[in-house]
Design a protein around this nucleic acid. Sequence first.
DNA 1: AGATTATTAGAGACCTATCTCTAATAATCT
DNA 2: AGATTATTAGAGATAGGTCTCTAATAATCT
Lengths: 196, 196
Amino acid sequence: MARPPRFDTDQILDAAVRLAASGGPGGVSMSAVAQAIGAPSGSMYHRFAGRTALLAEVWLRTVERFQRGYFASLHSDPDPRPAARAAARHVVAWSRAHPEEAALLLHGPWEFGRADWSEEHTARADSGNQRVYTALGALAESLGATGPQDRDRITLALVDLPLSVVRRHLRAGEPLPPHAEDLAEECAAALLPTAP
Amino acid sequence: MARPPRFDTDQILDAAVRLAASGGPGGVSMSAVAQAIGAPSGSMYHRFAGRTALLAEVWLRTVERFQRGYFASLHSDPDPRPAARAAARHVVAWSRAHPEEAALLLHGPWEFGRADWSEEHTARADSGNQRVYTALGALAESLGATGPQDRDRITLALVDLPLSVVRRHLRAGEPLPPHAEDLAEECAAALLPTAP
DNA sequence: AGATTATTAGAGACCTATCTCTAATAATCT
DNA sequence: AGATTATTAGAGATAGGTCTCTAATAATCT
């Protein structure tokens, strides 16, 4: 019914990921992405309402890809303690497998203009986060951690701490050292509430 | 011998801190800072070689202020374990006392254009970092942690982890909860190598 | 008082990025 | 084949930011 696209959405987002990994969110300009794939700048605006929308889409595609595997790890074992270890490990392993997307995630949604996102984009982000927090809450409960401080501690162990391991190296432009997964797993385990 | 300055350097840097805290490094434009203090844009270039230099100076002043207290905490006790606890605690306490500067630090030097800094600025940054790492190395040694993995773990416990506690709240625009210092201290202690 | 000099003051050149607009193009559908 | 339509293609208007340049200003020094 119409002319077929020469540049599809994923191709554009892939280029945006590369640019974000090397130059940060600021490096993702409409013209830079267009140039990276050899498209005229006008085509960009045919797919994305504007730069804000592009930033939102590239962020959301990346975080959703990450969360898919993160969820799988969290539910990989009926016993909460091995599941927690697997989750911490997954953060590092996924980052090793997808260094550019990981570098993007380390910047956080606010750097990708979250304050200006449309309602749809904001809702997508909130829904993903909500799923993560309820899953973490369930795991916390099955560990016997009930207070809000306990939950903070578990979020720290299974999300923030593994991300810190990744951040330190990726920000310096180095690859992740071989023992990074072990480090994240061991440290996460050390932060879980001790068995009664 | 000359006309006295109406806008001094610290006043300019203070405004830059405020702008960086609210709008990130991208919000720190020469014109925005000038407007914030009511100065013409030309005066900015009289004090700073350019935007790059301004970003470097505001970053370095902030990180050096932070490190001063961090060092004091690291050396506050001859026993390494309480010293480690104090250091982790200090990160959070300092951030609570200086939320705008803390928000600035969370972005990291690369966001402040570190790649384009002058040699002087780069050297200043390196020297500060070097001092921190040697101090952490000494503490690691007195804890009996000798391997490179042990040192990574201590850096994680005394730097990255407390920063994660701060990041989670400041990025969301919330103030730090009352128990944040305790959380950072307890988690840091849990990550230290267990006594032989 | 007069010379000296660091600084303020602000206009404007230059660049880069976002976004709009019009025309050409290439596929599908009848 | 001809109509339809999503898309490419790219020129250009607009905005905002960096940086330069010249003149005015206000203090100190002799």
